[in-house]
Every structure is written in structure tokens, then in C-alpha cells.
Design a protein around this nucleic acid. Structure first.
Lengths: 129, 129
DNA sequence: TGTAGTACATACTTTTTGGTTAGTACTTGT
DNA sequence: ACAAGTACTAACCAAAAAGTATGTACTACA
């Protein structure tokens, strides 16, 4: 028999770590499936919504705007709307967004080195199918 | 009326990004609520299971061993069992785990700078309650 | 005898994340 | 008249992550 507590600690733990651990704070900002990739695509030049979509064919439109919105409210990127019709919207990195480049670079470097000989525990290789 | 596809692209997207994007690869290895913190605590010296637990009072035992297991199979840390009773188990960083230090450092630095004036969008501040 | 400490395991549930499907308003091109 | 392109919105759902509660085997100590 299972009796659950009324209030879970899930959000409380998240809050606490965001507050006390700067790494967790950063992780919360750039974590998830798509944010790093979006930041990467915008790292050289500003792009329009449609350009981003075409640069990442496997992201759905819902996920794309959702992530863009979150990145915007987190002040990592800027949304520029030209009030014309059809709409013309460009996304570019802010100061804070630019400052993430060395972070992403460090992660990319580690990933490149240590994924080479890694055992893929959570992924079934296509070749094995 | 809603009719769902039989196979979702969730895992396929994850696989694809892990394969093509080294940042995503790294993120998958150190992401989640607790892994960064565990790596941080082990960054200076090896610790026993109980010492880790006491260092992170709000993690549950289930989450702790689960994360430790994943970090071990990902070869970021080493599990040392002394076959005595009561059990004596120590965890320490591997080469790959050590190599993550600059990555965590870069994230910590960014987090410290850009969390100071951040708007907490996903968190209701305690003071507001 | 019973309580605490060692390091876990397991069944179950809640919360969050990611994905699916369908639709909006407007204009230009065929 | 109708399709295609612009940039979205919203209802709905499945899968993954995180958390809860409880139990294990063994020993030392009071």
C-alpha cells in the first residue's frame, strides 16, 4: 500500500540547487534537448525563425518557439520583430548568450574527446539493429 | 479527436543529437538534478557512500545510488568496494571525470555572473509568498 | 533484545519534458 | 480559387526524470 506525501520536494530541490549551485543554474538555462543547438546556430549570426527551422529539420515548430521563448525570457537571446506582413522575426544572442560560447566550447571539447571510445549505455547503435 | 503515431521521435532525436552534437553528448552525461553536484563533491577527494549522502542532505538514497551507478557505467567515476562487513565503498573520479573539471568551472563562472541579476521566471521567490 | 550504522534494492507514484495534430491571420504567386 | 510561405498558438498525450515508502543483510554496541 502506497500513501504519498501531499507536497513533493521536486520543485524545492530544483529551486534550492538553482540558488546555491551556479553549475545547476547554468544547466537549467542551457539544458534540455534543443537549447544548446539553437545557441550554436545563432553564435555566428542572427537568424530568422524559418532559417532556424530549416537549420534544424528534426525539431518541431512547437519545440522551436517554446525554446526560443524560454531563451528570450532568460535573456540569452533577443527577438526582433519587424511589423510587416508577412511577419519578419530575427533572433540574435545577447551579451549573456555570447558569454556562453566558452562554456559550450568547453563542453564540445570534452564531448569530442570522451565520446570516441564511450560505451553507449542508453543508446542502441543503429548497426546493431 | 487525437490519433497518436505508433513510434515517437523522442529517442531518435536524442540518439541523433548525442551522435552529431558533442555538447549534447556532454549534457547527457552530466545533466540532471544531481550529477554535477556529485562530481563537485568528488573533485577533491574520494568519498564513501555515506559521506556523499551527508554532504548532500536533500538527495534521497535512491537518487544517489542511481546517479552514482550511471556515472560509473559512463566511466566518470570509479567504485571501490572493500569486501568487509559492514561494507566499505568509496567513489572517486576517473580520468574522464577529472577532465570535466574545466567544463564545470566554465559553467560555474557563467552562472555566478549571470544569475546575479537574473529574473527567476520558473521559480517563485520565497519572499513573494 | 533492540537500535544504529553500513550500502544498497524495489515497487510505486508524481512531475516535467518532449512530441503530435490541428489550426490561426495575412499575403503573394499560379 | 487555391496553394504556399510567414511566424506562430493551443489542446492533447506519452515517455522520462525525480521522489516516496519500505525492505534487505550483516555487525557492533548498549
Amino acid at each position: 500500500m502506497y500513501i504519498a506525501k501531499e507536497s513533493s520536494t521536486n520543485l524545492q530541490n530544483k529551486q534550492m540547487l538553482m540558488d546555491k549551485c551556479p553549475v545547476t543554474y547554468t544547466l537549467e538555462r542551457i539544458g534540455g534537448r534543443w537549447k544548446a543547438l539553437i545557441l550554436y546556430h545563432l553564435s555566428n549570426k542572427a537568424l530568422r525563425y524559418g532559417e532556424l527551422k530549416r537549420a534544424m529539420p528534426s525539431i518541431t515548430e512547437k519545440m522551436l518557439i517554446q525554446q526560443l521563448k524560454e531563451l528570450e525570457t532568460d535573456k540569452l537571446l533577443l527577438r526582433d520583430v519587424k511589423p510587416v506582413v508577412p511577419p519578419h522575426v530575427t533572433y540574435s544572442l545577447t551579451e549573456a548568450g555570447m558569454a556562453l560560447k566558452p562554456v559550450l566550447q568547453a563542453m564540445a571539447t570534452w564531448g569530442l574527446i570522451y565520446s570516441a571510445d564511450a560505451v553507449y549505455n542508453d543508446v542502441v547503435k543503429v548497426a546493431e539493429l
